[in-house]
Design a protein around this nucleic acid. Structure first.
Length: 419
RNA sequence: GUGAGUGUAGCUCAGUUGGCAGAGCACCGGGUUGUGGCCUCGGUGGUCGAGGGUUCAAGUCCCUUCACUCACCCCA
């Protein structure tokens, strides 16, 4: 086999595709219920967009983007989108909404691309469903997002845990950051090699190091250094989700690297999907719109890792059992011609119909009908055709009777009703 | 980018000290002239990941390489 899919890219079919569709369908439905409108975005953007939003020094921008020169315009560097938020913010500003109509609620869904080393729940083309709210700085909006995610958890019957934290704002974070840096430098000898690099580049990240767990636990917490306004915002969010019955824990080690993230940060995790356990991540980014050249408008949102959510759904073992089709089995050329007419008639009534091969034997075709999960088989042979009828076989009950061809649809509709 | 594990039939895997490449499942057919699942009999199906080496002889030993999986790293 010389033609294979690229590393880290997936072909999705059967149960996997069904789980994906189920997650996407469910998220769309819930987003509409929360008054979000869809935004459809390009797969390609200027590299510059990600440099300025995701961050010049982030691994995503530095090492993981599929970036290349646009054909015939070598000076224009473009990239396959590694995430959705920058495009949404760019579109929002580009449409002038930040000035003309700042309060907006968008959702998007689709593939993202990052050239990482693949592992369970992490692929080079992965799918995200995300929402962004602009123009709302209140805690109720943050809480609503968490409640919305919990609706999804309930509808998919998943076991997930929501972890929340607050990162503070421009007022209180600089002082906290300095305290953390001080703490890190004081314990330099005890920190792992990766954390030495983190300390300089992105000090908050030492908090979620998997090696220096003990040290991270003893580190100063952002929650203990919040200004009064941030404290009140955070307490309100936690209070609101608690009252809404959202299972959650406060985790001071939930962090974000870049300065435009403010206040609320959260992750939702599943224990069923491997080491890459975050199925949702989100939070507030009051500085992002302005950082990308727009007005000073607050923002908050989240993105769901559809791949991981689908994995979690499949792990429950009760993903979906699609309704089986009606199998039409014909013997002989005349029967085949009548069979394809009947198939069309049944389909026009909304039934799911599989017209089986006219070139194989009855025994093989019944076996085939069984394999594809057909509920009924309609068997038309020369004898039946001569009488203007067909055998209608209930495959689960192993019972069959002859029905006139014009009555098949009614008979099938009647037997489908009791469910 | 780093590390570990695994590559043998479509799938899951066995293969002893180096000695004729196997099983189960799946697929196709017979047992049943037009009736599925269960049973039974048979059949199709192989670049043993690839390349090189050692040997009378390599799936098995050595070297190189590729791929997959998981974890690290990173993570809107």
């Amino acid at each position: 086999m010389t033609l294979t899919r690229l590393r880290g890219f997936q072909d999705l079919y059967g149960a996997h595709a069904a789980a994906f569709s189920r997650v996407e369908e469910c998220t769309r439905r819930i987003a509409a219920r929360y008054a979000f409108g869809e935004i459809r975005l390009p797969l390609l953007e200027h590299v510059e967009l990600y440099r300025r939003s995701t961050g010049e020094t982030s691994d995503v921008v530095e090492k993981q983007m599929y970036a290349f020169a646009d054909r015939d315009e070598a000076e224009t560097m473009i990239a396959l989108r590694p995430e959705g938020t920058p495009s949404v913010v760019r579109a929002y500003i580009e449409a002038g909404l930040d000035r003309s109509d700042p309060e907006q609620r968008f959702y998007y869904t689709g593939p993202m691309f990052r050239r990482e080393r693949p592992q369970k729940g992490r692929y080079r083309q992965f799918y995200q469903f995300g929402v962004e709210v602009f123009g709302r700085a209140d805690a109720a909006t943050d809480a609503e997002l968490l409640i919305m995610i919990d609706d999804l958890r309930r509808e998919l019957a998943l076991e997930l845990m929501t972890e929340v934290n607050s990162l503070g704002c421009g007022e209180c974070r600089p002082a906290y950051r300095a305290r953390l840096l001080e703490y890190g430098r004081a314990h330099l000898g005890e920190l792992c090699k990766d954390c030495h690099a983190r300390l300089e580049r992105n000090p908050l990240r030492i908090l979620d190091c998997k090696i220096d767990v003990k040290l991270a636990e003893g580190a100063p917490k952002a929650l203990d250094h919040l200004c009064a306004a941030c404290r009140k915002h955070f307490d309100t969010v936690v209070d609101l989700i608690a009252k809404a019955g959202v299972p959650h824990v406060v985790n001071p080690r939930i962090v974000r690297g870049l300065d435009y993230y403010t206040r609320t940060a959260f992750e939702v995790t599943s224990s069923a999907v491997g080491a890459q356990s975050a199925v949702v991540a989100g939070g507030r980014y009051d500085g992002l719109v302005e950082a990308l050249g727009g007005a000073s408008v607050p923002g908050t949102g989240f993105a769901i890792g559809v791949d991981r959510m689908a994995l979690a759904l499949e792990a429950t073992g009760k993903a979906t059992s699609a309704e089986g089709p009606i199998a039409i089995i014909t013997m002989g050329d005349d029967a085949m011609r009548r069979g394809i007419e009947l198939a069309h008639e049944l389909r026009s009534r909304g039934l799911n119909v599989a017209l089986l091969s006219p070139e194989r034997g009855l025994k093989a075709l019944l076996k085939r009908a069984d394999k594809i999960g057909a509920s009924h088989a309609v068997i038309i042979g020369p004898d039946e055709l001569a009488r203007g009828g067909a055998q209608l076989r209930d495959l689960a009950q192993s019972q069959q009777r002859e029905v006139r061809l014009e009555d098949i649809a009614a008979a099938l509709s009647a037997s489908a009703k009791p469910d």
